[in-house]
């Protein structure tokens, strides 16, 4: 089925799901996104947006407030998440973790925290672009790692940690990721990224 760009207020076919709502029996898009209908359900993939936490998300966070028995961690949500943990952290430590719980006021509890090696860098893209940065079966992120020699951890919250053999390598990787995010919805992106990274 051909994919169509919808904007808030557009009627769509299919039962309502995330990013759509029910208006007197009609399904309506609530965001700017790409729409298609699958098995009777309206699917809208938003083209922009901040991180909306869900249980089990793998995220890259930054410790903002170490505490006894845990830490407050910034995961790119309006307010910091809480991580109960026996490990001790410092302000600015970069970690990966999983979302254990999200309550009704969107407070996030994390677990399965791991500190990443120090001296890497963290960049941010819109969370809606993350699937493209990862690619089908990790194809895109593997390509990036291979062609830049960098190690990368991609968080569902739009944060990407990377560390490389040289600062130039990291800079290349960073530019490539931003390029993917900017062109996420165009065809032939994988080829273009291959080309882009082979040039420099």
């Amino acid at each position: 089925m051909a994919r169509v760009i919808v904007v808030p207020g557009d009627d769509v076919a299919g039962k309502p799901s995330e990013f759509t709502y029910n208006d007197a029996g009609k399904t309506v898009s609530s965001v700017v996104g790409i729409y298609d209908e699958k098995e009777g359900v309206a699917r809208v993939i938003p083209l922009n947006g901040r991180y909306d936490p869900h249980i089990d998300d793998y995220v890259v966070g930054i410790v903002t407030e170490p505490r006894h028995g845990g830490a407050r961690v910034d995961v790119n949500t309006p307010f910091a998440a809480y991580l109960p943990t026996p490990r001790s952290y410092n302000f600015g430590d970069v970690i990966t973790a999983r979302v254990k719980d999200v309550d009704e006021v969107k407070s996030v509890i994390l677990w399965e925290d791991r500190k990443v090696p120090s001296s890497g860098t963290v960049i941010e893209v819109s969370p809606v672009k993350v699937p493209r940065v990862i690619g089908k079966k990790n194809s895109m992120v593997d390509l990036l790692k291979q062609l830049t020699g960098c190690d990368m951890l991609v968080g569902k919250n739009g944060r990407i940690w990377m560390k490389g053999p040289s600062d130039a390598a990291v800079a290349r990787a960073e530019k490539a990721v931003l390029k993917i995010a900017a062109e996420a919805h165009t065809p032939g992106l994988t080829e273009r990224i291959k080309e882009y990274l082979s040039k420099e």
Binding site: I62, T64, D74, N76, A80, G92, V94, S119, G120, T121, V122, I123, E124, D167, V170
Partner: peptide, 14 residues
């Protein structure tokens, strides 16, 4: 904002 500050502090060294 804590958000803005925290990201720059991580990037500064790089």
């Amino acid at each position: 904002e804590i958000n803005e500050e925290i990201l720059w502090s991580v990037k500064r060294d790089a």
